[in-house]
């Protein structure tokens, strides 16, 4: 993995703000949001990486910014990689990875549904879990979970 990491750091330079290697086959990268798509593409296609399995993609809200988390696995080398980045809460835009990993399609839709993060280039970015007419993004820390905000639609109480 060492040679691969060296190549990666050389290739992207300052776009990778930090990296940690936990174990011989586990790596965590923190990258700039602008090179998010490029790095994912590189990790998938580079012969020394071959990260062909998207295990997870999620978002969390720290209160100041959104963190985006992508976990990849290589079926060839049995390597794990965690790629992290952060985007601003006011302008939550990040490039979509659906063209590289079709499997993250629903993950990105879910994160749009829950946090309102816009994945640019996603072919079908709409709500997936909540009803289409839901107001707000419930997993944001400042969401007010009052039932009056999103009442039960359709049938009214019988009594």
């Amino acid at each position: 993995m060492n040679q691969a990491v060296e190549n990666l750091l050389q290739r992207f330079g300052e776009a990778i703000t930090e990296w940690t290697q936990f174990s011989p086959n586990e790596l965590r990268l923190t990258v700039a949001a602008s090179s998010w798509q490029e790095i994912a593409q590189y990790l998938r296609d580079e012969p020394l990486w071959r990260m062909d399995y998207p295990a997870d993609l999620t978002v969390w809200d720290t209160g100041n910014e959104f963190g985006v988390y992508l976990r990849l696995w290589s079926s060839v080398y049995n390597h794990n990689a965690i790629v992290l980045t952060s985007i601003s809460r006011e302008q939550p835009h990040i490039a979509s990875l659906t063209a590289i990993y079709p499997g993250v399609d629903w993950h990105e839709r879910e994160m749009y549904d829950m946090y309102g993060v816009i994945f640019e280039g996603h072919p079908n970015l709409k709500r997936i879990l909540l009803p289409d007419d839901w107001e707000g993004f419930p997993f944001r820390k400042d969401y007010v979970a009052e039932p009056s905000g999103n009442p039960l639609h359709g049938p009214q109480p019988v009594n």
Partner: peptide, 23 residues
């Protein structure tokens, strides 16, 4: 199966030797 991140018996039936108990 790989590109869509399939796991468990679905992945193993498609030739991906991935079992978290072994990996």
């Amino acid at each position: 199966a790989l590109a869509y991140g399939c796991s468990g018996p679905v992945a193993r039936a498609s030739g991906i030797a991935y079992d978290i108990r072994k990996v």
